[in-house]
Nucleic acid binder design. Structure first.
Lengths: 216, 216
DNA sequence: ATCAAGTCTGAAACTTGTTCTAGATTAGCG
DNA sequence: CGCTAATCTAGAACAAGTTTCAGACTTGAT
């Protein structure tokens, strides 16, 4: 619950970049077998061949580490998705298709998914910045799928709702409380919101347009 | 990650019931100042005047304890809500009104909300049963607000999506990444799904109707 | 090449959730 | 009442996240 060293990351040397990569790689490795609990800081440090203190210098907590891993994986995913854009006619279909593709990717490594998603939702205020980065990337993926160039505030809210559903549905699946089929139905259900017309004037829609409300 | 003693709870003696109450009360107390981190098992035990081992006999983990606390609070809430049912004309308005009332209740004790919600989303498979109870109570509250007597599978999916949004929006608020106004907009946005007509035939809608998919 | 500042290592210590043990208490029953 | 099984207590012990520290190593600038 400490650590304040964000104000613009100083450029890393090559060896440092390599260490960072080794750490993230070891983390994903351990997460793939065993999930959240199997990612133990001492083991990550050992597998990445860095001292425990160094691991904590790079990632100030286990949660930071796993959220950073998620950022990493999201980058891969976004790149993959760009290569073959969704094919549906309606925006809602394209978004649902995109999310189901992401879902299938997560199903391939359910333990890794477990580790990343649990970290994401367990993160407290100290990890706001990093969680927000993940959220912005997810938003970007969804907006890409909609094809919208200049989304209205209402549409942004719809995208947020889709993201909420996405995260929470993942959790219920990971904790064994919902089936894959149910997640699919829920995603398709929420995506229907996209195609709804914007009501002309709704004063509630643009209270606090976007951007996080992170306190100093 | 052990403990299997659910198959019908044996009736508790009076003293046991009292202990259970003391524990839940102490938990809520500690949670109110300090949130999730302030609920420390040793402190709960001390405040409730039971031994640590006894605390663990009643609630096999901190997560179980906090989820049970949430069940407790939900009961209060549901009772309160029944007294003054929502007044909106459309089902979507009534649900939004109900959830916003619940939200305002949580705002009164944000630390307690933090403890309960974090526990809920962090819970792993070992807590499925208890989390599912909370989920069913939440569903009941929402269905009450809709006024629907015999919801269709599609409508149940909508209710699940609303629940997803509710949980996830709470998390973003608790972690300081969304304002109260944003949560309000998101809730109102997702509630618009309720008033959508049921498309006549959608084969996806009734794959795996309801009920948790908890493995033995 | 050399010095200062910053970084990395290894190891121990500390915190808090969880488990375990031995003995005291309690509850139900004949 | 007296017995037995279950429950409760106090406290130690263990596990994993986090912090700390002394000393070795790098880096960058002179």
């Amino acid at each position: 619950m400490t650590a304040e060293v964000r104000p613009a990351s100083p450029p890393l040397t090559e060896r440092q970049e390599a260490r960072r990569r080794r750490i993230l790689h070891a983390t994903a490795e351990l997460a793939c077998r065993g999930g959240f609990d199997a990612v133990q800081m001492r083991e990550v440090a050992e597998a990445a061949e860095v001292a425990l203190g160094t691991l904590y210098r790079y990632f100030p907590s286990k949660i930071h580490l796993l959220v950073a891993t998620m950022q990493d994986q999201l980058d891969h995913l976004h790149a993959t998705l760009r290569k073959r854009p969704p094919s549906g006619a309606a925006a809602s279909e394209r978004v649902a298709e995109t999310l189901m593709r992401a879902f299938r990717a997560l199903q391939r490594e359910p333990n890794l998914a477990d580790a990343m998603v649990r970290a994401l939702t367990f993160a407290d205020r100290g990890v706001s910045r990093e969680v927000d980065t993940v959220s912005r990337r997810t938003t970007a993926i969804i907006l890409d799928a909609t094809g919208l160039e200049h989304p209205t505030p209402r549409q942004l809210s719809v995208v947020r709702v889709i993201e909420h559903t996405w995260h929470s549905a993942l959790i219920t699946w990971l904790s064994g409380r919902a089936s894959i089929a149910q997640v699919k139905v829920d995603i398709e259900t929420v995506c229907r919101l996209i195609d709804l017309p914007d009501p002309a004037a709704d004063p509630a829609a643009d209270a606090e347009p976007a951007g996080p409300a992170v306190p100093a």
